[in-house]
């Protein structure tokens, strides 16, 4: 257990980044990371020594997130719709082209596509590791990734068109 700290801490910034992109709330994201780390610590001895620690942690985090979302939906709360319809942050405004906040746009994708765009595109996990995290074959990862990127592109382009029309 002595090595847990040395192995886990360097991975925390990436876990926080993924969690924040998923839940879009700083405190809720840290709650999710905390649950992930507690679970990892309590299962430390059961972790496979040949397995990739990073992929294992992302698996735990994503599963906790998916479970919590499922429970939230059962209770009839769906936060993401509110977020999707709220005015997007104009963080990219100066670029002129992409006016919508890319994270807000990403929220409109199904969870599996959103997670893949983050795990592969941001966290640099291999396609095989991403497949293990999502519990699907690598081929499915590739097609979902393509579909997710296509959808994101379409959404960002629509946002731009809408805005241009409004300006006219």
């Amino acid at each position: 257990m002595a090595d847990a700290e040395a192995l886990l801490e360097p991975l925390i910034p990436a876990l926080r980044r993924y969690a924040y992109a998923l839940v879009r709330d700083h405190d809720a994201a840290d709650d999710l990371v905390q649950d992930t780390l507690e679970r990892a610590l309590s299962r430390w001895s059961l972790r496979r020594s040949d397995g990739d620690l990073r992929a294992w942690l992302f698996t735990i985090l994503r599963n906790l997130h998916v479970s919590a979302r499922r429970q939230g939906q059962r209770r009839g709360m769906h936060v993401e719709l509110d977020e999707a319809t709220s005015p997007s942050t104009r963080a990219q405004q100066e670029s002129g082209l992409e006016l919508q906040d890319i994270l807000t746009t990403l929220d409109q994708l199904p969870e599996d596509q959103k997670s893949l765009l983050l795990l592969v595109g941001v966290e640099d996990l291999s396609y095989d590791d991403a497949a293990k995290i999502m519990g699907v074959p690598t081929g499915t990862v590739m097609s979902r990734l393509a579909r997710g990127r296509q959808k994101l592109r379409a959404l960002l382009e629509t946002g731009r068109t809408t805005l241009l029309r409004r300006v006219k």
Binding site: I12, P13, R16, R17, D30, A91, D101, G121, V122
Partner: peptide, 19 residues
Amino acid sequence: LRSRLDAKFAEPIPARLRI
């Protein structure tokens, strides 16, 4: 997407998440 999340990654680890 990567650069949008850079700031989050660069944040110091909050005390409650220290192992």
